[in-house]
Design a protein around this nucleic acid. Structure first.
Length: 271
DNA sequence: AAATCTCCCTGTAGGC
DNA sequence: TGCCTACAGGGAGATT
């Protein structure tokens, strides 16, 4: 499931093949994603060059003239560069045809993702305009968490997963960051001290940074086409380990549901 | 305003 | 072995 590190890895993987290239053709085989793929994508994108590529949270942006392709991978989406005549896999929904007999191919079995064509400044698009800061950018710190959470009664885990607070912290990394920080996910975030907010922000950056670094090591394979991550799995402390012993103290990890999401923590290490 | 719930979808895992 | 069900997940949008 693509979290921020996978989206960043995808961006880095496809950039050398896409940046500056002309899109020759757009083939939409199945437009039924999170939102319908607009007909204007296939109508207006061909002939344009991709002039700039950017990630914002888990969204990817491909700028082409006065328009912009906005892509989200949902939870099962992937983008890969393949030879033009590569046989399609099930759920390969969209092709952006590139020069040199190459194709940027969008696959998404569960279709939670999207591909939109925007004509206005994407920063003002409803999907992007109210997003919080990038966790690895200069505008995110413990202060973001501390100042944003005063008076809030929601759990600290729900809070750090709220894209209006900070983007890109999905369920896996929220669980892991809270474990590393020693913070219990169920705590009311409004009661968290400034010092603990600092520590938590550090841990979020650490965990995402490390995951990106590891994604980088599989970058070649990724672009080559298999795209299945899992490279970070061996270093997970709590996610998917409910009722197993804590890696630090041996206490059995507890699993609860918080905001409809599976939440695992060590009742000893996380207070 | 903030908190909570619902929904979109399919592959996978577990139970029988 | 095969069928059935429960579950996973991002996050917008609706509801409380």
């Amino acid at each position: 499931m693509p979290e921020l590190p996978e989206v960043e890895t995808t961006l880095r993987g496809i950039t050398p093949h896409v940046l500056g290239q002309q899109i020759l053709e757009v083939v939409v085989r199945n437009p039924h994603l999170r939102w319908p793929v607009p007909a204007s994508l296939a109508r207006e994108l061909p002939g344009r060059h991709v002039e700039r590529m950017q990630r914002r949270g888990k969204y990817l942006l491909l700028f082409a003239g006065d328009g912009c392709v906005l892509i989200h991978l949902g939870m099962s989406g992937s983008l890969r560069i393949v030879p033009a005549y590569e046989p399609r896999l099930p759920h390969d929904h969209i092709d952006l045809v590139l020069p040199g007999e190459r194709v940027l191919r969008y696959c998404d079995p569960r279709r939670f993702g999207c591909m939109l064509w925007l004509k206005d400044d994407p920063q003002h698009h409803p999907l992007l305009q109210s997003l919080g800061p990038e966790p690895l950018g200069e505008h995110f710190s413990g202060r973001t968490l501390f100042e944003g959470s005063r008076g809030r009664k929601t759990s600290v885990k729900a809070f750090i997963m709220d894209s209006h607070v900070v983007v890109g912290v999905g369920n896996i990394y929220a669980n892991e960051a809270l474990f590393i920080a020693g913070v219990r996910p169920t705590l009311a975030v409004g009661r968290l001290s400034a010092a603990r907010c600092d520590r938590l922000a550090d841990c979020i950056q650490q965990i995402l940074g490390r995951a990106i670094a590891m994604g980088g090591t599989t970058l070649r394979d990724f672009v080559g086409g298999d795209g299945k991550p899992g490279y970070f799995k061996q270093s997970l402390h709590v996610y998917g380990r409910g009722a197993q012993p804590c890696t630090q103290c041996g206490t059995l990890l507890k699993e609860v549901r918080l905001g409809q999401r599976s939440t695992v923590f060590c009742p000893q290490c996380q207070r």
